[in-house]
Each structure stands twice: as C-alpha cells, then as structure tokens.
Amino acid sequence: MAKQILKAAPDVINKGVVGVEQQLRLERFLTYEAALMDEHEYDRWMDLWIGEDITYWLPCNSDDQDPNAGVAIIYDDRPRLLERMMRLKDKAAHAYRPRARLIRTVTDVVPLAQKGDELEVISNFSLGEIRTGTENIWFGRCHYFLVDTEEGFRIRWKKVLLLNNDEPIPNLTFLV
C-alpha cells in the first residue's frame, strides 16, 4: 500500500490516526489473522468477518481493476466466501491436499482513517509456501476496513494486492 501511505503522508505518519495502545491491538489482530490463515483454521478465520455486506477481493491485472469491467482473482461476497470455505475444508478438493505449509510476516501496519467504530488500515505481507516439494514466495499488500467491536476487531472489507497479480501464477491454495 505504498501509494496509500504516500497519499496520506505526512498526517497519518506524523500524528497518526490511533494511539500507541490501539496500534499494538491492531498489529496483534493482524498477526492473529495471519496465524489463522497459516494454520488453515478456516472457521475461526471466517468468524473474523462481520455483517452480511462483506467484500473479499483480490484484483487481477491491475490493483484498481474495476470488478464489473474486468476479471478478479477473487471477488467474494458472503455467499461466495462461504462456498470458498466449503471447498477449502473439503477433503475431496485435492488441489488443497496435502495442505501448503505457510509462514507469513505482516508488516507496515498503518491506520489511514477512523470513521466512528470503523478503521481503515493498510499492511504488507511476505509469505513462504511449501507444497509437494515446491517452494513459492508471495508478496502482497492488504487494505482493510475493520470494525472495532467488544470482541475485538472484525473485518468488513479486505482487498489484497498480490505483487504478481498480472503474472501467470500457480494454484493459490490458501488464504491471503
């Protein structure tokens, strides 16, 4: 989300949108989300989403590709995301068996704006994947709209910009 950071600077860099405590809570939440994805804990990851009107979006070809004008790698509303969960969990979906072994690091967490209980946040990740003897390295930027609830942060909208989203990519058999 380098572009968003540069656009929001210097205010969100110098003053910051949230205090230190809130920043730490946020980073812990995104680390927790990453751990659920690394460990293929699909039900618990799904529990992080809030509301019926959700979007989970991986654009293809360009970061700002309009999903109504062009193809997306993923463009899920809640029903489509629930079907994705069915397949990720299904032992008969052999593309996901054996499961990939994953480690990702989440970095560069910057809150961009706060409106009521909703926080707009960006972050970066690097991810190592090993599956069936092949190692893949993935890089991406995430853009979230999170809702701060009594149970903790919840995801309403998430857009993931894979660095290679305009390149031929192998099976993406896990969550990013």
Binding site: C60, N61, S62, Q65, A69, G70, V71, I73, T134, D166, E167, P168, I169, P170, N171
Partner: peptide
C-alpha cells in the same frame, strides 16, 4: 478487453 485476463501456470 485489452489486458483483462487471468493468467495461470502449472508444472
């Protein structure tokens, strides 16, 4: 549409 394509690969 120009540039609207999903690119995949397999080994």
């Amino acid at each position: 549409k120009p540039g609207v394509v999903s690119k995949t690969m397999y080994r």
